[in-house]
Design a protein around this nucleic acid. Structure first.
Length: 874
DNA sequence: TGCGAGCGGGG
DNA sequence: GTGTACGCTCGCA
């Protein structure tokens, strides 16, 4: 009997805990294994007052991180895990120092028995149990069980769901305390009884499983889940919308929310720090929205754009404000709503199944030992602490409790006073060519290993001293626990990468996720040691790591300059940017040579490697640059290079920018880097400004969108999109955007406050309104572009005109203008006269200015210069 | 430049 | 449940 661990909890029976391991067999059966005779315990530093009512109090020899010496500790075993806080607090009140008194019981069990989240279990001796307390295919009392080394995953069932609801107050957002759920769509992989997707609704119709009341709908939802018995339950934003809503409705309808694998524990959504956390025994809840937001860099994260960008699929187009009408409307309208709902559930499902969203979290679980649910929710700290707890316990150490708020505050103060990070080499500010980037492979993990840096090797009697001034024992004397963990993680990664070379199919995915997880985990240890809430926080250790890093990078830059004669133009923490003349191949060869030579003289496992080539490199400041990058082509056998633009610290896409800004920024960067054409970039920019002033930029490129999150009257300040909604409501209440809708606007010319000049792009086009070009220049284009040009020593006034502080009218003077006949004021215009020298032109000169540089004006038959310049005529 | 507030996704 | 504690962008000082 073997199964893969999905979830673990415990129940208390006769004042003793029974651990329940929920899992899945290779054949796809859901399992729950009961494990008895495992008891909660924690430690006190001896001598300590003996706790009353404990089951067992023993004196044991253990080490702790403060002294690294073996000493007497008191191990206190109790009956009920839930009572640990009482025992702990009593001990603390009596002045004792406590250890491991805040380890969740399920993790106490997993750690002590060497099990891991998503690890496999072999049950060697068991009895099948008849019980109604859990809802699984197979329940057993496990008498003897052991961890099993297996990479492959059990076949998992995934259920996605999506709810629809309608407000009884038209126009308002639905309120779970008041408004019913009308529809629930379910999509499953693999299909359930031949059905891949099902729509439950309280209105009958084709493709709908009809439920006669909301209560019946909620009950049907629960029975479906029980019948399908999924391992993964997913939805898009289900943690913060669907689950809390559904659970509130169940409460209102007196439907017991029991659809996990425990027949007695309710599914619960609890508000934590403004967000909901949902728990369901025996299954894993996956909110695809939250994962996509973490793992993919996108402009927007609504289901429509996420599905479009990641799956190449579209939602059925239904606005939130339309749902009520479709729900109450004729059959074809209702049908559209049903389709909309079904597709949403299908998309939510595909995000998980097609994108293999869980791979990396599964990989991390297997390495760190955390349960999949906790890997999805928790951060890096949780993962590291489980690895550390295991390792410290194995070495005979007691593991510290989490610091309390007072301790955290103390640490913050210490950190504020004396913590220094990586070293950033001051960039040589100009446009560089032929730059090679060399970097240290996993710099901080390598430093930790090379110098044996660990709280367990920190000692005044240490063999070597870090630049920070702390002393550490030599590895030969005693290898630190963290250096050893990192050695294992990094070696394991090499093994996995080797296997990856020949792997295919699902095995390849599992291995790829594993090597990725190993790398991420190894790189997180340094940050952990300097994190004030860490159990193993140590500022001397953290500072020692970065101090070695700074010393090594400075020495490396120095050596490259002095011994190899190359110029170092930039560097950040673990990298040096070096100018090496030649073509890409020559540069790469020389860079590899330099990296190899430097590596030879570096201590331990420190390794400098050639990373990439920047054929052109434009630093703006520390941590901000744009570059034309060349990396060796990835494709097997395809010798050669792949190039692309790389930017750091330069936002090329921002939600509050109109498309014109991003496009112009991209174009300007391309021209500068790829064509080495700074003049052309300036010309391009000036051309855009001219087109903008002339009204030749399509309105769509000037649209900014913002979401209206609450009703317009609830906004306190004046915001452009809200002011626009107010205007649109006045014009046509039916078509005005509602709560949750994205509002698109452009800024038009006028004398009013900027916010009041936001206008509907469609309205602008229909009514021929003028765009406020000055706004687009000053507030949109200039801020990002000015920084780029400034790094090339091109000033704002050079960009906008010729030398002095320029106003908008001055910009117009130097621009090449094209005057289209249709835009001329009237037929009585005879020609153009120069404002400055009076020169007459029958047709406008191409440059739009007089040969003397003066501005041109229309002249009417009366011989009077019209007050309008040709530019403003548009 | 640093800090606090407010929002995102969902209907 | 031997609990927990978002992360980014924007406006303002």
């Amino acid at each position: 009997m073997e199964f893969q661990i999905l979830d673990v909890d415990y129940v208390v029976v006769n004042d003793r805990p029974i651990v329940r391991m929920f899992g899945k067999t290779a054949a796809g059966k859901s399992v729950c294994a009961f494990v008895e005779h495992f008891l909660p315990y924690f430690y006190l530093r001896s001598p300590a007052p003996a706790p009353e009512r404990a089951l067992k109090v023993e004196q044991v020899r253990r080490k702790d991180i403060a002294t690294n010496r073996e000493a007497e500790f008191t191990r206190v075993t109790i009956a009920n895990p839930a009572q640990t806080p009482e025992f702990r607090d009593a001990a603390l009140a009596a002045g004792a120092e406590v250890f491991e008194a805040d380890i969740l019981f399920k993790y106490r069990f997993l750690n002590d028995r060497d099990f891991r989240g998503l690890g496999w279990v072999q049950v060697e001796d068991f009895a099948e149990v008849g019980t109604h307390t859990v809802a699984v295919d197979l329940t057993l009392a496990a008498k003897k069980l052991a961890p099993l080394n297996r990479e492959a995953d059990a076949p998992l069932k995934t259920l996605a769901f999506d709810i629809e609801c309608v407000s009884i107050q038209p126009g308002d957002a639905p309120d779970a305390r008041r408004d019913p759920v009308i529809m629930i769509s379910l999509a499953c992989s693999p299909a359930h009884e031949g059905e891949q997707a099902i729509v439950l609704a309280t209105r009958p119709g084709p493709g709908v499983r009809y439920c006669e009341s909301e209560k019946a709908l909620l009950e049907e939802f629960i029975s479906f889940i029980k019948a399908y018995d999924p391992d993964i339950v997913t939805g898009f934003n289900c943690n913060n919308f669907d689950f809390p809503y559904l659970l509130e409705r169940m409460e209102k309808n007196e439907v017991r929310p029991i659809f996990g694998r425990c027949a007695t524990k309710r599914v619960m959504a609890r508000k934590v720090a403004g967000r909901f956390k949902v728990t369901m025994a025996g299954r894993v809840i996956v909110d695809s929205f939250e994962i996509v937001k973490k793992d993919f860099s996108l402009q927007r994260y609504n289901l429509d754009s996420v599905a479009d960008r990641l799956l190449g699929k579209k939602k059925v187009g239904v606005k939130h404000s339309e749902i009520e009408r479709l729900w109450k409307g004729p059959a074809q309208d209702y049908h559209r709503l049903v389709e909309y709902s079904r597709v949403d559930a299908e998309l939510a499902l595909e995000l998980v199944t097609k994108l293999n969203l869980l791979d990396k979290y599964a990989g991390i679980s297997k390495i760190a030992g955390t349960l999949l649910q906790d890997t999805l929710e928790g951060g890096e700290t949780t993962r590291i602490e489980h690895v550390l707890l295991r390792a410290f316990n194995k070495e005979g150490y007691v593991f510290p409790c989490k610091p309390n708020d007072r301790q955290v505050a103390e640490r913050e103060a210490i950190k504020q006073k004396g913590f220094e990070g990586g070293y950033v080499i001051e960039p040589v500010r100009k446009l560089h060519a032929n730059v090679v980037v060399l970097d240290f492979k996993s710099m901080y993990p390598s430093i930790i290993r090379s110098f044996n840096i660990c709280p367990t090797t920190l000692s005044p009697d240490g063999d070597h001293q870090s630049p920070w001034g702390a002393r550490f024992l030599a590895k030969e004397k005693r290898q630190g626990i963290i250096p050893r963990i990192l050695e294992e993680l990094m070696n394991e990664r090499q093994v996995v990468k080797k296997k990856l070379r020949v792997a295919a199919g699902p095995e390849r995915r599992v291995l790829y996720a594993k090597q990725w997880g190993l790398k991420i985990l190894a790189n997180a240890f340094y940050g952990y040691l300097g994190y004030t809430r860490a159990r193993v926080f140590n500022i001397d250790v953290a500072n020692s790591i970065t101090s070695y890093g700074r010393e090594i990078i400075k020495k490396t830059a120095d050596r490259i300059t002095r011994e190899f004669g190359y110029e170092v133009v930039y560097g950040d923490t673990d990298s040096v940017f070096v100018v090496i003349p030649g073509d890409v191949d020559v540069m790469a060869a020389k860079a590899t040579e330099v990296a190899g030579a430097v590596t030879k003289s570096l201590p331990g496992v420190m390794e400098l490697e050639f990373e990439k080539i920047f054929m052109r490199f434009l630093p703006l400041s520390k941590k901000r640059y744009a570059a034309w990058k060349f990396v060796p082509a990835l494709k097997e056998g395809a010798a050669g290079w792949e190039d692309g633009i790389e930017t750091k610290g330069i936002e090329t896409v921002r939600r509050d920018w109109c498309p014109l800004v991003g496009e112009t920024l991209q174009d300007v960067i391309q021209l500068i880097l790829k064509q080495d054409d700074v003049k052309g970039a300036v010309q391009l920019f000036k051309g855009i400004i001219t087109s903008l002033v002339n009204g030749n930029i399509p309105v769509q490129k000037l649209v900014v969108t913002k979401t209206m999150t609450k009703s317009a009257r609830h906004y306190l300040g004046v915001q452009p999109h809200i002011e626009l909604v107010k205007k649109m409501q006045a014009r046509s209440p039916q078509e005005a955007p509602g709560i949750g809708d994205r509002v698109a606007y452009v800024i038009v010319k006028g004398t009013e406050l900027l916010s009041k000049r936001a206008e509907d792009p469609g309205f602008v086009a229909e009514n021929g309104l003028q765009i406020d070009s000055q706004y687009y220049i000053e507030n949109q284009l200039l801020p990002p572009l000015e920084r780029i040009f400034a790094s090339l020593n091109i000033t704002k006034s050079e960009l906008l005109g010729n030398g002095r502080q320029m106003g908008l009218m001055d910009i117009l003077r130097a621009r090449p203008a094209v005057v289209e006949p249709a835009t001329l004021p009237s037929a009585d215009v005879r020609g153009f006269a120069c404002e400055r020298c009076g020169q007459f032109y029958a047709t406008a000169p191409l440059l739009g200015v007089c040969t003397c540089g003066g501005k041109l004006r229309f002249t009417s038959p009366k011989g009077q210069a019209d007050a309008i310049s040709i530019n403003a005529a548009q």
